[in-house]
Write a protein that binds this DNA or RNA. Structure first.
Length: 465
RNA sequence: GGAGGGGUGUCGGAGCGGUUACGAGCUCGCCUGCAGAGCGAGUAUACAUGGGUUCAAAUCCCAUCCCCUCCUCCA
């Protein structure tokens, strides 16, 4: 709201209430959505590690003009359509290793609460009823415009939509729209459906209670959505809706915002198939959350090169959990670990500086790769490079691909036969096995004690497909 | 037109008054059966432009130019 940073203290305030404005489910989730969701996922992971308890709520907008239109085109019900995309949402964000929210309220499931809020606003005189629906009277809200820092007169001057003659002021917005086409809900003012903004006010009220600690979403929601939520909730409950607002910068594709309306979207599923989930996370965290990020092959290749270093270190540290703890008493990386964690925490604590946090992860990764390549892998203490590395890795929400047991077995068998061939000097056949495994997505690294292998996102087709 | 955010080396991207951010890419070596990972050296002047403040500015101030977002639904 003020554009300033705010400090949370886990001892004074053990539980944080966070609400993120989720998706309107009429199409597949795309990488622009992932930018917001992965940001909030990382924020949650940091807060949890810092000792907070977090109650995180994210909604689905499942009644909306676009959903209705889309369902009509496909000849299916709006419920079926939104269920389909909600299922995709869970599938895609599952592969991106995003933690589940504590609750996923849906507009259609809280109609009674929505109606109650609208009714409250009408009774207070802050909203009025006309034949087309119920509108919030913006003139009754003294601080309207405080979030987006816009003056009413300027908004009116710049308005791009023709005013609805039934509204008192062109800026008044619908709380309830009266319709005669499905889907419909009964209300004291007539059958119809709710306005977009009121659903979030209702969900926050029901699930968390005002004021919440953090309210977030994409920067394109600042106006009018969040401004209107504030107008509704604060008029009704006379207390702040949220103590802090976090808005995530848009993802741009060739200079333009990636959005469903413009049709220039990359679905998450498609991205993951080409680049992998961790490369996406790395890429999205490689810029500050509040800044806009450009989507280009060049940048993605960059992220993928960085991710390669990290995924290699992950494989090494899982194989050698005591790496960097004093091989024969002469090698101890504990101070490197300590300072990496320190820098990492201070970067994230300062308004979630994920690019700096990533650089600490990469530094530790390089150190692990270095120790591995020089054979210093079996330390003698618990606290190791790999402990520190995993801490950063997990806080940023990276993941390791799961491999079915049978596949693990078959890969290991092939590696064994490759190593027998290598022993006999039959490098041609050995290399053939290696390249087959690489085509299947497995990276092989020979070292004096054997062969390390792992599933690698670097081997995915990337932008070449 | 109004509001908000940006313009940093080949590229991504921090920094926002004084220290090499970090990383990727490329070149040449080393290491390796070959790879991978790693190591060493290099990749001229990096901070949109023009003024100013200061002992000192990418960082503060003033102008100018360019880009994006919002002012309709959008993460």
């Amino acid at each position: 709201m003020s554009g300033e940073k705010k400090t949370f203290d886990s001892t004074e305030q053990p539980t944080l209430k966070i609400y993120n404005c989720g998706l309107t489910v009429y199409d597949s989730p795309h990488v622009g959505h992932a930018k917001v969701i992965i940001f909030f996922d990382t924020l949650r992971r940091l807060l949890l590690r810092k000792g907070f308890r977090v109650r995180y709520v994210e909604n689905f907008t499942d009644v909306d003009d676009k959903i209705i239109q889309r369902a009509r085109e496909l000849g299916i019900s709006t419920t079926l359509l939104s269920e389909r995309y909600i299922a995709e949402y869970f599938r895609d964000f599952g592969t991106l290793n995003v933690m589940k929210a504590d609750s996923y309220p849906r507009a259609t499931r809280i109609m009674a609460d929505i109606i109650q809020l609208v009714d409250g606003l009408v009774k207070m005189g802050a909203a009025y009823v006309v034949p087309s629906g119920v509108y919030l009277d913006v003139g009754k809200v003294k601080s309207y415009g405080k979030l987006s820092k816009i003056k009413l007169s300027e908004l009116r001057a710049g308005a791009r939509v023709e005013p609805d003659p039934e509204k008192k002021d062109p800026l008044d917005f619908a709380l309830w729209k009266i319709y005669d086409e499905e889907p419909l809900w009964d209300s004291p003012w007539g059958r119809g459906r709710p306005g977009w903004h009121i659903e979030c006010s209702a969900m926050v009220h029901k699930e968390l209670g005002e004021p919440i600690d953090i309210h977030g979403g994409g920067e394109d929601l600042i106006f009018p959505h969040h401004e209107n939520e504030i107008a509704q909730s604060e008029t009704l409950f006379s207390k702040p809706l949220s103590n802090l607002w976090l808005h995530v910068g848009m993802l741009r594709l060739s200079g333009e915002k990636m959005s469903k309306s413009l049709g220039n979207v990359i679905p998450i599923a498609e991205f993951v198939r080409r680049w992998g989930p961790n490369t996406l996370r790395y890429y999205l965290l490689s810029g500050l959350y509040r800044r806009q990020l450009e989507y280009s092959i060049n940048v993605l290749q960059n992220s993928r090169e960085n991710w390669r270093i990290v995924e290699s270190a992950k494989a090494i540290s899982d194989r050698f959990p005591r790496i960097g703890t004093g091989e024969k008493g002469d090698q101890d990386d504990s101070s490197a670990v300590t300072s990496a964690i320190l820098n990492f925490d201070s970067a994230l604590s300062d308004d979630m500086n994920t690019p700096q946090a990533l650089s600490e992860l990469v530094k530790l990764s390089r150190l692990i790769n270095l120790r591995f390549s020089s054979g210093q892998v079996d330390g003698d203490r618990e606290e190791s490079l790999s402990t520190g590395f995993n801490l950063l890795f997990d806080t940023l929400g990276f993941s390791k691909p799961s491999i079915p047991d049978e596949e693990t077995k078959s890969v290991e068998e092939r590696i064994t036969s490759r190593n027998e061939l290598r022993k006999r000097g039959e490098f041609g056949r050995a290399d053939q096995i290696r390249s087959e495994l690489e085509r299947a997505g497995y990276a092989l690294v020979d070292y004096p004690g054997g062969t390390l292998w792992y599933k690698s996102e670097y081997l995915l087709p990337g932008g070449s497909e």
